[in-house]
Design a protein around this nucleic acid. Structure first.
Lengths: 241, 241
DNA sequence: ACCACAGTATGGTCTGACCACATTCCCCAC
DNA sequence: GTGGGGAATGTGGTCAGACCATACTGTGGT
C-alpha cells in the first residue's frame, strides 16, 4: 500500500495552542476576552501547567495573548492584538543572525512606505498626526530625538493608508532599523534635507497626488540610505498620475 | 526629583532570550550552530529549566531556533532561519481573531507580489521554477492541487526578486490565504483564465518588462479576488516603462 | 566485520511546591 | 455608617526533581 503518513509527534503545548485557536474560531472569542487560568486550562486539557505555559509564551510572542498577574477582572490571560511586537522581534533576531540583510529590510521598507504613501494620498485620510510629528521634529536637537519623531511621522503615513497589516510591518521595520536611522541622521550632519523631504511627502499626500507621494518617499529614503538598490524602472511611480 | 523609571518586571525567560541574543551578536553565532542543552543552560544562567524551555519556545516561534530530541550531533537546539513559519502563524491567528481583515491581507499580498514581479523582471533571474510550476498546474484536476502549484508559482516569483524578507512574507501570506484561494478557484469554475494570467506574468518577467509584470499580477489577483480594492492611480505601473 | 545490547545525553512531560502580586473580603475601631 | 487595615484568595512566575521516549555511542560477543 502507499500513502504513508509520517508519524508526527505533536507536542503537548502545540495541542494547547490548537485548542485555544479552535475556541477562538468556534466560540467567537475576540480581543479583550479572557482565557481560563493556567491551572484550570491544564486540568481541562489534561496536560501539565508547564505545557499550558509554553503555549502561552508562544501566543504571547505572536501578539494574540497578554497576561497580567494579580487578582481581579484585569488579571489573567487576555486576547490582544499586537502583531507589530512579534514582527519586531522577528526582524531583530533575524537581522542579528544575518539571515536577513540590512539591504533586504530597507528594500522592504521602501516597498511598504511607497505603497502606504500612495494609498494615503488617495484616501484623503486625516493628516493631523503627520503635521504634529513634523512640528515636533523641527524642535529636536539630538539625532535620537529626531528619529523618534521621524518614526512617528512615517508610522502615521502607514496608518493613513488604512491597512493594519502594512502598518504593523512599518512599525516593526522602523523599530528594527532605529539604530541605523540614528546613524544615518548623524552621518548627514543636519536634518534640513530630511525635513524638506518630509514636507514634500506631506504636501503630496495632502494634495491627493499618489505618484508624487511615492516619488517623494523614494527620494527621502534614497537620501537616508544612499546604499540601497534602485527599484526597477517599471516600479517607479509618477508616469501616469 | 524627576525621571522615575517604571519598575519593570523582567521575567526569567526574557533574560534567557536576551542572553542568547547577546551571545549571537557577541560570539558571532550563526545558522547551524548548536546551543547548549537546556539543563546546562539553566545551570549557567541560574534559572530553572522551565524558564529556559519557555525561552526556547519563543525563539522557536520566531523561527531562529529548532530542536531535535535524541542524542548525537543532530540533537539539541540549533540556530535556524525560518521567518516564514512565524509570519504564517501570526497571520493565521490574527485573521482568526479578526484583528486583521481578509481585505488587508489580500491588499498586502498585491503590494508584495507586484513588487516581486517587477524586481524579478529587472533582475533577469532564473525562471525554471516558474516554468515547471506552470507545467504542473496544467496537469492538475482538483482545486487543491491547482492551488498547491499555484502557490509554488507565486512563491517562485517572490524568490526571483532576490529578497528573503519579502519572500518570507509572500510565503506566509499564501499560506494563510490557502483556504480562500481554493474557494476562489472553485468559484471560478475553470482555471483557463488564471493560467492565461500566469503565462502573461511569466512572459513579462522573462521579457524583462517590470511594468507589464506588475500589471499582469494585478490583473491576475483582481480575477481571483474580485472584491479587493483598486490601488491608487499613481501606484499603478506601466506609465514610464 | 558485523550485530545485538547496554549506556547515555537529549528534549518532552508531569507533579507539587512556593513566591510575588493585586484584588477582594471582612472585621474592628471610630 | 464609615473608614481603615489586615487576612484571604486567585492570578501568573519560578523552581526542583523526577520520569519518559528518543536516538546516537560504545562495547562486547559472534
Amino acid at each position: 500500500m502507499s500513502g504513508w503518513q509520517p508519524v508526527r509527534r505533536t507536542r503537548a503545548f502545540e495541542d494547547v495552542i490548537a485548542q485555544i485557536e479552535r475556541r477562538i474560531a468556534d466560540d467567537g472569542l475576540t480581543v479583550g476576552d479572557r482565557l481560563p487560568g493556567e491551572r484550570q486550562l491544564a486540568e481541562q486539557l489534561r496536560v501539565s501547567r508547564s505545557s499550558v505555559r509554553e503555549a502561552m509564551r508562544v501566543l504571547e510572542t505572536l501578539g494574540v495573548v497578554s497576561s497580567q498577574v494579580g487578582r481581579g477582572p484585569d488579571a489573567g490571560a487576555f486576547l490582544t492584538s499586537r502583531p507589530a511586537g512579534a514582527l519586531s522581534d522577528l526582524l531583530r533576531l533575524h537581522l542579528g543572525l544575518s539571515s536577513l540583510s540590512l539591504e533586504e529590510v530597507v528594500d522592504a521598507r521602501l516597498m511598504i512606505e511607497r505603497w502606504s504613501a500612495s494609498h494615503a494620498a488617495v484616501r484623503g485620510a486625516d493628516l493631523s498626526a503627520l503635521t504634529s510629528a513634523l512640528e515636533r521634529m523641527d524642535a529636536t536637537t539630538t539625532a535620537e530625538e529626531f528619529v523618534e519623531h521621524d518614526t512617528a511621522f512615517h508610522v502615521a503615513i502607514a496608518e493613513a493608508s488604512g491597512n493594519r497589516l502594512t502598518t504593523a510591518m512599518m512599525l516593526s521595520l522602523r523599530d528594527s532599523l532605529r539604530r541605523y536611522a540614528v546613524e544615518a541622521v548623524e552621518r548627514l550632519g543636519d536634518t534640513a534635507g530630511l525635513m524638506a523631504d518630509h514636507r514634500r511627502i506631506h504636501r503630496a499626500i495632502a494634495g491627493g497626488d499618489p505618484a508624487e507621494a511615492s516619488a517623494a518617499v523614494e527620494a527621502h529614503l534614497r537620501r537616508a540610505y544612499p546604499g540601497i538598490s534602485l527599484p526597477p524602472r517599471g516600479d517607479r511611480h509618477g508616469g501616469d498620475g
